[in-house]
């Protein structure tokens, strides 16, 4: 079984993520060509270590994100410090704060404007489920209703350490991807049929 390596954090520390384990199992079911596999590893190494985020702070979590960039937590150590202000140049969108009905089309548009491959991290209770504002008439109860989310980081706002854990989870996820062969994207014929039968 392929186990993605993240520097200074043993694989066993990433507990409880059955979904990723299953993904690995499925991707490696038929085995991998050596050359293609190595190339994939190289590409994934590059992608996972160079996650440039789009500055998208809507609320409180954005301040913690700034603290993340500052000297004490210094996300530059991981190479995350290149925050791009243009969605075209960003690799991931970190949704930092509540998404409201008025903001939702904007978020969707920003996501659409990003170049592939793109990832979404939902930071904080508000983005995950609406948080304390779940009952409001103007708050989207969870951004997964609008864009596909890769990693959820709970908290209000999460501590900087939690941000890192979330980012490492994303790195781990990226390290499992298959660029060649496009296993990640293409759905198998029978799966689609299965769904239509259900």
């Amino acid at each position: 079984m392929k186990e993605p390596k993240i520097k200074s954090i043993p694989y066993s520390e990433f507990k409880d993520n059955e979904y990723l384990e299953n993904m690995v199992a499925e991707l490696n079911k038929d085995g991998v060509n050596v050359i293609v596999g190595k190339l994939d590893d190289l590409i994934n190494w590059g992608r996972s270590n160079s996650l440039w985020s789009l500055t998208f702070g809507t609320s409180c979590c954005a301040i913690e994100f700034m603290a993340l960039g500052a000297a004490r937590y210094d996300m530059a150590r991981f190479g995350f410090e290149v925050t791009r202000n243009s969605p075209r140049q960003a690799d991931m969108i970190m949704v930092l704060g509540t998404i409201t009905y008025k903001m939702a089309p904007v978020l969707k548009r920003l996501y659409d404007q990003m170049a592939d491959p793109k990832y979404v991290i939902a930071i904080g209770g508000c983005t995950i489920s609406g948080g304390p504002f779940k009952n409001s008439y103007h708050v989207v109860p969870g951004i997964d209703k609008i864009v596909p989310v890769d990693v959820y980081v709970p908290g209000c706002p999460p501590r900087p350490e939690a941000f890192y854990y979330g980012m490492m989870q994303l790195q781990r996820k990226i390290k499992l991807e298959r660029f060649f062969g496009g296993v990640n994207r293409k759905e198998k014929e029978e799966d689609i049929q299965d769904e239509s039968e259900d």
């Binding site: 520097k7 190494w45 992608r47 270590n49 160079s50 190479g79 690799d91 660029f179």
Partner: peptide, 23 residues
């Protein structure tokens, strides 16, 4: 500054280059 990718982050920019080439 970059510390994680390679010794003292020496490989950081290479990772960026790989990524941007296939973006």
């Amino acid at each position: 500054g970059p510390m994680r990718v390679g010794k003292w982050g020496l490989l950081q920019v290479f990772a960026d280059v790989f990524k941007i080439l296939i973006k």
